[in-house]
Design a protein around this nucleic acid. Sequence first.
DNA 1: TAAAAAATCTAATCTTGTTTAGATTCTAAT
DNA 2: ATTAGAATCTAAACAAGATTAGATTTTTTA
Lengths: 204, 204
Amino acid sequence: MTLIQATKKSAVTRQLILDAAAKMLSRHGYHGTYLKDIAASINMQAGSLYYHFNSKEALMQEVLNKSIQLIRDIVEEEVDKLGHKPDFVSLLKAAIRGHLIAILRHADYTLASIRNYGQIPKSVHDFAQADRDAYENFWRELFEQAEKEGVIRSGVNTHLLRLALFGSMNWATIWYADSGTSVEEIAESQADLFLHGCYKEERD
Amino acid sequence: MTLIQATKKSAVTRQLILDAAAKMLSRHGYHGTYLKDIAASINMQAGSLYYHFNSKEALMQEVLNKSIQLIRDIVEEEVDKLGHKPDFVSLLKAAIRGHLIAILRHADYTLASIRNYGQIPKSVHDFAQADRDAYENFWRELFEQAEKEGVIRSGVNTHLLRLALFGSMNWATIWYADSGTSVEEIAESQADLFLHGCYKEERD
DNA sequence: TAAAAAATCTAATCTTGTTTAGATTCTAAT
DNA sequence: ATTAGAATCTAAACAAGATTAGATTTTTTA
C-alpha cells in the first residue's frame, strides 16, 4: 500500500526536470530556453514534461520559487549558527557568507532568477515576489538594527549600502565559475571591504 | 552634391532602430526580442529592418558594441576632467561617477549588455569582447597603480575589490529607475563605501 | 520635374517551439 | 503473472518569428 505519494518516481523526475530547467534558464534566458532541450538533457521528450507541469510558465515559476527559497534557507542557517544576539560584524559576515554560499552553490537556480529578473512574463515573476520581499526585509532590518546600535559610520546611507552590497554579492554569480576563488575567500573579502573600505587611512 | 553619405536619412533611421532594439533587448532579452516589435515601435515593418542590418544577430552586435563604447567614452571624459596626475581618491571617484553616469543615462544600452551577458549567441558576444577587455584593463591598472602608491590598506585583494565595485555599480541599473536617487548621490555613496566602509571604527 | 537611387512594404517561405491527444511502455501491488 | 495506474512517447496541430524577393513608395540629384 502506498503511503507517501511524493516519494515515487514522479518526485525524482520532477526534480530532474527542475534542475535541468534551472540550468537552461540560467544560460539562455526564459525565451531562449526550449522544452525540447530541457527534456533532451534528461533523455525525455518535450511532450512528456506536461505530465509533470502544466505549462512552460508553471515550470519556470517553480524554478524561480525554489531559487529564492534556497537562498533564504542557507542564510538563515548561517545566521542561526551565531546563537543569541550576535554583534553586527559577526552577523554581517554570516549573512554575506550565507548569501554567497547559496547563490554560488546553487548557481543554476540563482542565476536563473537574477538573470531573468524583469524579462520574464509578469505572472511568472510575481509568483515569488512575497518571498523576495521577505528576504529583502531581513537585510533591511539588519542594517537598521546596526544603525540603532550606533556602529554605522555617520553619513552612511544604509539603503544605498544594502543595494551596493547586494550588487557585489550577486555579481559574483557572473565571474565566480572561472575565477578559481573560493566562496569563503569572497565572503571574507566582501565583508571586509564593506566594513572597512580599501583605503589606507592616515591615522592621527 | 552629397558629400557625406552618413548624414542621410538612413543614418537617422539606423539610430532609431538601434535605440528601439536596445530598449527591447534590455527588457525582454535576446530571444524575447522580436524584430516585429522593434520595427513596430518605430512604425516600420519587420522586413524593412533588413535594409539596414543583415540579420538580427548583426543588429544585436551593434547594440552591444555601442553599449560598451558609451561607457568607455563617458568614463574617459570624467577622468580627463581631472587633469594631470590626479590622486587616487579623485581618480576613483571620477571613474565611478563616469561609469554610473554612463550605465544609468544610457540604461537601455547597458542593461541590454549586462542582462544578456552569457545568454546571447557566442558570435554576437565575442564581437565586442576586445572593447570590454580594454575597459576592464583601465580599472585593473587604476587599482594596481594605487597599490604601488601605497594607498591601499594592507590585506585588500584588489582583484576582488574591482569585481565587488563592478557589481555594486552595475547592479544599480536594476534598481535605479524606481529609486528616486540621483546618479551623483549614488556615485558619492559608492565611492565613500568602497574607500572607507560602513563601520564606525573605534579610533585610539 | 524626370530619372535614379534609397528606403520601405507586402506577402510568402522556412523554421522552430509549444501544446495536445491518444497510443504505448513501464511499475508496483496483489 | 495480471492488472490498474503511472509515466513516457509519438505524431500532428497550431502559433510565431526570421528571412527573402520583388513590388512600391519616397527622396535625392541633376
